[in-house]
Design a protein around this nucleic acid. Structure first.
Lengths: 207, 207
DNA sequence: ATATAGTTTAACCATTTGGTTAATTGCACA
DNA sequence: TGTGCAATTAACCAAATGGTTAAACTATAT
């Protein structure tokens, strides 16, 4: 029966993708080894090529998947009525994603830096366009909910505050937090508040 | 005469280091190829090993050099009398360094992520300890120049605002700035001011 | 001039790595 | 039960890569 085949295929395919995600996230494209992915998936290396043809194709799949999960959250946030809650949701989308996938920021930054042009293509392919966040912010300024400022600067600041601590986690842990996991956890638990208080102070109208 | 030999040695050594810096900065440890470094230096590949023994030793040299140049600027900034100027100088040290070495943030983040423990060792070896920035900020709070807040959050915020835009440059250029070099240059020219205005708003006492 | 010591190179080596192939297994179906 | 097709594997391959070596070159000191 065809249905069972399809199901088996999907199972193996998923096993491979899970292993590939782990390895690529941790080691990046250059550092990852097909053999390690196969080992982690518990299958023969030839299967990777049987299902995904090449390392690059497999990598792309993993890369695209990571964004497909994340971006809708940001888009969703912008439909929220209250301006404050909307921006809070964007911040939350970023931070919760990275709590769940700690390697994602480094993974993206490395790939971004490795092949920027291919990155741009993939973004367009998936339909990610951060400019809509910018226009969203500009709308909120027009409507008088936010102070009128340079929206490019504002969005860069917000994203910087959300993403960078995760990207620099090993540094912060070792040089600022005495390698103490608890301090990191507390820091991250507060992070949404911390970022929002900066945004409030700098960009929202004083009540 | 020994002097001439030493000079020649130094010349070749520097040629190698310059080439190695370029390649490692752009491709990272995993992506860099010894042959490419040799080609860029215009010498035989064996020379790399003659002078630096191994890829890792060469990489370490490049890595350490990058910090040795940068960190004293930050330390120097903290000796400045006026609190505002002191913090401005720290921000300036970061941003000017990255204007000069655009690949440095990605280079550091990648290495940080690749071998965090070795990174920590190198930092201690060079004598870099960002905690002194934290205690410096705390002193300014005690003295009433800054609002009393969590110094860890403050330093992370400041560094995030300074570093992240450079690390994410390829993304920002392509998705927010229409690949327009001029927009990027303007953005970076304003960056010191932008960051300082956030710091002023959030952390300095209102005049 | 020649010995000596450091410098540089071409050729080579062992290992790793992404990818292929041909044979084997397992399973639906007739 | 046997046929056919997809899934899976072991063995293999060519290219790339970090590293080595032995010979050649250069310049200096005697």
């Amino acid at each position: 029966m065809d249905g069972l085949n399809k199901q088996n295929e999907n199972v193996t395919e998923q096993v491979i993708l899970n292993a590939a995600r782990e390895v690529f996230m941790e080691k990046g494209m250059d550092g990852a080894r097909m053999q390690e992915i196969a080992d982690k998936a518990g299958i023969n290396k030839a299967m990777l090529h049987y299902y995904f043809r090449s390392k690059e194709k497999l990598f792309n799949k993993v890369f695209i998947e990571a964004f497909k999960e994340f971006w809708p959250q940001v888009e969703g946030a912008m439909t929220i009525e209250t301006p404050y809650k909307a921006i809070e949701s964007i911040v939350e989308a970023y931070i919760d994603t990275f709590i769940d996938k700690p390697f994602l920021p480094n993974f993206i930054l490395a790939e971004l830096h490795r092949t920027p042009d291919r990155f741009e293509l993939l973004m367009k392919e998936i339909g990610i366009n951060p400019k809509i966040i910018m226009t969203f912010l500009e709308k909120l300024m027009e409507e008088g909910h936010l102070k009128k400022t340079n929206s490019l600067n504002m969005i860069v600041n917000v994203i910087s505050l959300c993403v960078f601590p995760f990207a620099a986690r090993p540094l912060m842990m070792r040089l600022l937090m005495d390698n103490n996991e608890q301090i990191w956890d507390d820091f991250i638990q507060q992070r949404k508040e911390t970022v929002m208080s900066v945004i409030k102070e700098c960009y929202f109208m004083k009540a």
